[in-house]
Nucleic acid binder design. Structure first.
Length: 886
DNA sequence: ATAGAGCATGGAA
DNA sequence: ATTCCATGCTCTA
């Protein structure tokens, strides 16, 4: 603190932060407790960077001590040098140089190897066993962050550590457990760098308890050295595991972090918290074995943390084991991140969550960063450039050059990449989890299954091609399927774009989705006798099941309503529109008004429409037979699909196009379908005024349900948009019909029946039990799209479909009654105008409102729309649901 | 013209 | 109000 001049804020004055200096500030120095950086003049900054600051300005200050090992003087009483030394277990201090040496030489050093990132060192640390780490961690009051009181020593000392030691000043207790940053001149913020597994564990436990460092089992302070510094700006609840241990970083330039060995330096709270349940208590745990074993995400493990929950690694034991394989390596989950469109795009830049980057990756002082070696679960090593961009007063960390890896893993936006570390090797391992297998927040139960990219055999590429096999009940299923398909070779920039966020949300709300999906799955089973129609798209052959599409749409519209309580629409004896819904608990089907908005988890108790049947004990209205009739008729089934084809690109595009189409269908926009690459830019930023479905809904997907009578802006918008959409479509449809009629008269095409006629009547009826080929034809206006295998358009598809023209498709003709119901719903909606915003509400409800799910009307409507015009779209989607077999 | 690199912007948390 | 971060924008090669 002597270093901290009187200036209250480095940013408020133009003078050098150093009160002893009168020059103007121009560079950043150490990080202040406030989180800002001390701004220094060139001279002071240089001194700081070179480790001479205290020697220069604080010689007369108190707090100097001597390194117990080399006798060098270290200014322990100053924030500037906070990372230049470490406290020894037995008392006393050690300069970083010695500390580093010791840590290299002994596994029991107070200095976690994690501090040394550079390859050379990491190599040296390779032989450090996990045990060593744990021991390190438990080595006592290692000043991960030094308490103020620690700085009062007056022991003289002669020299400060290596300049790099100066880098980090992270005194921000709450956020940093700091590792000294290698950065020169710029104070790094490498908060929360855990030193080792045990530390993490401890932290985690702390976090789990949700309090700052006081867990019944663990005393963070014990191992982490509880910082007593005032919490700067971080969440006060955050454990103050400070650690300002600076570590002498090695020459950053040599970069290769190689194995990264490093254990994390950080207080990686949540992360660890989740994974290693209760193993180490206070970091003093000397039993290495207890730590870092299979980290198991615990649902209850979420404590508070600096890291956003979405970055918490959600590895399951299984996954961890897969990663570590048969080796004796212990896997330490670090963090995970759902790929954004940008991440998965061709730019090859993966944006790293700042805290994660700072916590687990080597500290970097220059924007150029360092090459970082990362091994995939297959053992293949990748080298990314870990760097950052100055961003405001912060940094934005990115991994560059990830494209090959991303492609290799066949990942796309929405999928999750995981970072973990293998101990004792210290290797950074990058795994992945396809969207559909992404474990839900705390429900990791079924995540370990497919596609996590961390197969034991290391075959990252073993992305299960079978969509269904990946169905894990999560709402991602369809999406994933789609993505899995589209990911097959050519990986274009993600189509998720704005969806990724939604995906994240969904991921976080997976519980709900899972249930929904479970429900959906029940409905997805194809009837025994059902014969799928085969759709040929771009040379791909798909077995098509209407419901798949239906479901797909649910899932597909990440930005829209989606997975909700699957219901079946019908018309009762009185001619009224109704919907059948199945109780989550008793599985009985209940009849509800067609416009009822249902939450994803609907139970009899929610049956306010029929009080007599608001209890599970109440008998089901439908007889088994009736139910049987009902289900098949709606094609509430999904089935596997085969995809024989070759053109992955085409496929990708098609899928992406479909994806987009789906959105367009909802939005009813007129623009031509954007290309896949455009997909993400179509909605670059939802600026003010944007009324897209994304923008008009609550960001978190949570929130109160909107009633049908709600007149809030969102609802109004939805109503208005829907109305407009319907009007447009009606108009379009009329035109189409007229045109179709004209053409029919002229040509009397054989495909006629397969044609576009979107009229409900046409769609009603058979569910095409017969396998037939559906040919998708590209041009949107071409009414010739047909399902006939003999169609001359076979294999052709035009992805540039326009929602408006979707009317022509009628894959739905197979969907008989379902289509009729949908049509009915649609008409009902249209006729009732503003009042009946069922569709719109459905969107709302199913969408942002989290719990509400499209009750079917919206879906139906959408479905229908899509169907009408774009067989191809449908087909594609359908196919999406069933991954390629070919 | 295109791709890549780096920075800026602004929505979301 | 601040920070994060996804992605757009601009410049350069």
């Amino acid at each position: 603190m002597s270093a901290a001049p009187s200036t209250s804020s480095s940013s408020t004055s133009k003078k050098c932060f150093n009160s002893d200096c009168v020059d103007f500030k121009s560079r950043k120095g150490w990080r202040l407790r406030s989180g800002e950086f001390a701004e220094l003049c060139d001279r002071c900054a240089s001194a700081y960077e070179e480790g001479r600051f205290c020697e220069t300005f604080h010689l007369s200050a108190t707090g100097w001590r001597c390194c117990d090992s080399c006798g060098k003087r270290v200014h322990c009483g100053c924030i500037v040098s906070i990372h230049a030394f470490t406290l020894l277990d037995a008392g006393g201090i050690e300069c970083m140089t010695c500390a580093r040496k010791n840590i290299v030489l002994t596994s029991n050093s107070a200095w976690p190897p994690s501090f040394f990132y550079n390859t050379p060192l990491s190599e040296r640390f390779k032989d450090l066993s996990v045990k060593s780490w744990s021991q390190l961690a438990g080595s006592g009051p290692v000043p991960w962050r030094q308490a103020p009181s620690l700085f009062n020593s007056s022991i003289p000392h002669s020299e400060l550590h290596p300049r790099n030691l100066y880098e980090i000043d992270r005194l921000n207790p709450s956020e940093r457990s700091s590792a000294p940053s290698l950065e020169k001149g710029r104070v790094e913020d490498f908060p929360d760098r855990l030193v080792n597994g045990s530390l993490k564990l401890g932290t985690r436990d702390i976090l789990e308890n949700g309090n700052a460092g006081t867990s019944s089992e663990e005393k963070p302070g014990v191992c982490l050295g509880i910082s007593q510094h005032p919490v700067l700006k971080e969440d006060p609840s955050t454990p103050q595991l400070g650690m300002a241990i600076s570590f002498a970083s090695l020459n950053e330039s040599n970069g290769q972090i190689g194995g990264l060995g490093t254990p994390l330096r950080q207080t990686a709270p949540p992360l660890l918290a989740k994974q290693f349940h209760g193993n180490l208590h206070n970091g003093v745990d000397s039993s290495p074995d207890t730590q870092i074993r299979i980290g198991r995400p615990r649902a209850d493990a979420r404590g508070r943390s600096q890291l956003l929950p979405r970055y918490w690694p959600r590895f399951t034991d299984e996954e961890l084991q897969q990663i570590s394989g048969n080796s004796n390596s212990v896997i330490t989950p670090l963090f995970e991140k759902m790929l954004s469109a940008s991440d998965a795009g061709r730019i090859g830049r993966l944006v790293l969550p700042k805290k994660c980057a700072e916590a687990y990756f080597p500290p970097i002082s220059h924007p150029e960063g360092l090459p970082l070696k990362v091994q995939d679960s297959k053992g293949k090593e990748w080298v990314f450039q870990f760097r950052f961009w100055p961003n405001n007063n912060s940094r934005m960390y990115v991994l560059e050059g990830v494209t090959p890896c991303i492609q290799n893993m066949r990942l796309q936006a929405g999928d999750i990449v995981t970072f973990s570390r293998l101990e004792p090797e210290g290797k950074l391992v990058m795994g992945f989890r396809k969207a559909s297998t992404a474990p839900s927040s705390d429900l990791d139960n079924d995540t370990s299954k497919a596609g996590n990219g961390v197969s034991t055999n290391g075959d990252v590429e073993l992305v299960d091609p079978s969509p269904w096999s990946k169905v894990d009940k999560s709402g991602y299923i369809a999406k994933e399927v789609l993505e899995a398909k589209s990911s097959i070779k050519k990986r274009k920039s993600s189509t998720l774009g704005s969806k990724s966020k939604r995906l994240r949300i969904e991921n976080e709300d997976m519980i709900e989705l899972k249930l929904t999906w479970e429900e959906a799955q029940r409905l997805l089973r194809p009837p025994p006798d059902h014969v799928p129609s085969v759709v040929m798209i771009e040379g791909f052959e798909f077995e098509e099941y209407e419901l798949v599409m239906f479901q797909y749409l649910h899932v597909l519209w990440q930005d829209a309503p989606i997975l909700g309580k699957a219901t079946i629409f019908a018309t009762d004896n009185l001619g009224q529109k109704i919907q059948w819904v199945q109780c989550e608990d008793c599985f009985k089907w209940r009849k509800l008004p067609a416009n009822a908005l249902l939450p994803s988890k609907w139970t009899c108790s929610s049956n306010s429409w029929d009080l007599e049947r608001s209890l599970c004990s109440a008998a089901q209205e439908l007889t088994a037979e009736q139910l049987e009739d009902l289900l098949p008729s709606c094609n509430l089934v999904a089935a596997s699909k085969k995809m024989k084809a070759a053109k992955q690109d085409a496929e990708n595009e098609a899928l992406e196009g479909l994806d987009t189409l789906a959105n367009l269908a909802i939005l009813g926009e007129n623009e031509a379908l954007p290309t896949s690459s455009q997909a993400t830019t179509k909605h670059p930023r939802h600026r003010p005024g944007c009324s897209c479905i994304v923008c008009i809904q609550p960001p978190s997907g949570k929130g109160p349900k909107h009633k049908q009578t709600c007149t809030c802006n969102v609802c109004q918008t939805v109503k208005r948009r829907f109305k407009t959409l319907m009007m447009k479509r009606e108009k379009k449809q009329s035109e189409k019909e007229a045109e179709t009629t004209r053409k029919k008269q002229q040509e009397t095409l054989p495909e006629k029946l397969l044609d576009d006629d979107p009229s409900p009547s046409t769609n009603t009826g058979s569910s095409s039990p017969n396998k037939k080929k559906v040919v998708s034809e590209g041009s949107d206006d071409d009414p010739n799209r047909s399902k006939s295998s003999t169609s001359p358009f076979k294999g052709q598809i035009d992805l540039n479909i326009q929602p408006e023209r979707e009317e022509e498709l009628s894959p739905g003709s197979d969907c008989g009654s379902m289509m009729k119901m949908l049509q009915d719903a649609r008409q009902q909606m249209l006729s009732s105008d503003g009042d009946n915003i069922s569709a719109g509400n459905q969107l709302l409800a199913g969408h942002g409102m989290g719990e509400n799910i499209s009750n079917g009307i919206s879906l139906g409507t959408i479905h229908q729309e899509s169907q009408k015009d774009h067989p191809s779209a449908f087909s594609m989607k359908v196919s999406a649901s069933s991954p390629a077999a070919g």
